[in-house]
Design a protein around this nucleic acid. Structure first.
Length: 293
DNA sequence: GCCCTTGTTACGCC
DNA sequence: AGGCGTAACAAGGG
């Protein structure tokens, strides 16, 4: 589930493509890739990579192309994930890299069955299954022979011309306290719903919102505009600190409410009470009734 | 086979 | 008008 951290890691992971020229486009899924992208991009040289919230922006000497990873999108450069294989837990790291090496060497081999963790969740955003070319939605060939693949099993990712980042709220990784205060002010919707609203604040997804509110001990159901000044300050500080920590650790899954700590029956890492599951803003919300108030 | 999950958008209501 | 809630989308997996 790519959120702002995965997008930022992706941006850094593909930074070395700056200066390369797109030679051809080999694969396109018209649902995922906006009409016109393929016609205008070949011949263009990548000039820079920007990001606003979850929106990745590819600057070229031709068109500006927006890449949104959606729910299951990822970028692979020569069959290597742009963010590395960070979305797995540590216990499986060694076996997984072995397996990855093996399947890369034998791309025709039938893929092994998907693995799940004990909570029954999908283990990865495609995981190390870089051999699943059937989920490639967009494949570019660059002038040095590099192949860049946009891989997206569920097809909720999007590649568009001239992405409209002006409609997004302030970026959550560079958020100032006054930006946060302005985003929350006057809103009567639940705090969680506003934090998820990309027009209010750009970058937070379902897991990161739960994580941040868990750390600062605020009830996700409270009206967003009803926070005290001290709570806004605390929320701002928590967003900056926790996102910074998780970015260094490698992504959205490295928090206190990591995927393994979100399933039914999971307990609060702070006080041991069973975590509540509530639908807020249309999304499953995991939170602690004891210390989030 | 029904239901869950995700981010975004479209739409209905007040 | 605009804030808010809900459903739809897609598709894999329990």
């Amino acid at each position: 589930m790519p959120e702002v951290l995965e997008v930022e890691l992706t941006r850094r992971g593909v930074a070395r493509l700056v200066g390369r020229t797109v030679v051809e486009i080999e694969v396109t899924d018209p649902l995922v890739v906006q009409e016109g992208v393929d016609a205008t991009l070949p011949g263009s040289t990548i000039a820079g990579l920007d990001r606003h919230g979850k929106q990745l922006v590819v600057l070229t000497d031709g068109p500006t192309v927006g890449v949104h990873l959606g729910m299951t999108g990822r970028i692979l450069v020569d069959d290597q994930s742009a963010i590395g294989e960070l979305a797995r837990d540590l216990s499986e790291r060694s076996t997984s890299s072995l397996r990855q090496a093996r399947v890369s060497a034998a791309p025709q081999a039938p893929h092994p069955k998907q693995r799940h963790d004990h909570m029954g969740r999908l283990r990865l955003i495609g995981g190390s299954r870089s051999d699943h070319h059937r989920w490639d939605r967009w494949v570019l060939r660059l002038d040095d022979g590099t192949r860049v693949r946009f891989h997206d099993p569920r097809r909720l990712g999007r590649v568009v011309l001239d992405p409209d980042v002006g409609r997004l709220g302030p970026d959550v990784l560079t958020l100032r306290r006054c930006d946060l205060a302005a985003a929350l002010s006057g809103r009567r919707a639940p705090l969680k719903a506003v934090l998820l609203d990309q027009h209010a604040l750009a970058g937070l997804g379902n897991m990161l919102v739960d994580e941040v509110l868990w750390w600062c001990g605020i009830d996700p159901r409270r009206p967003a505009g009803g926070l005290t000044d001290a709570e806004v300050t605390l929320l701002h500080l928590t967003i900056r600190r926790r996102l910074g920590v998780m970015l260094r650790r490698g992504g959205s899954h490295t928090g206190a409410l990591s995927p393994a700590n979100r399933g039914p029956g999971a307990r609060c890492p702070r006080d041991g009470d069973e975590l509540a599951r509530t639908v807020i803003g249309g999304r499953t919300t995991v939170w602690c009734r004891t210390h989030q108030r």
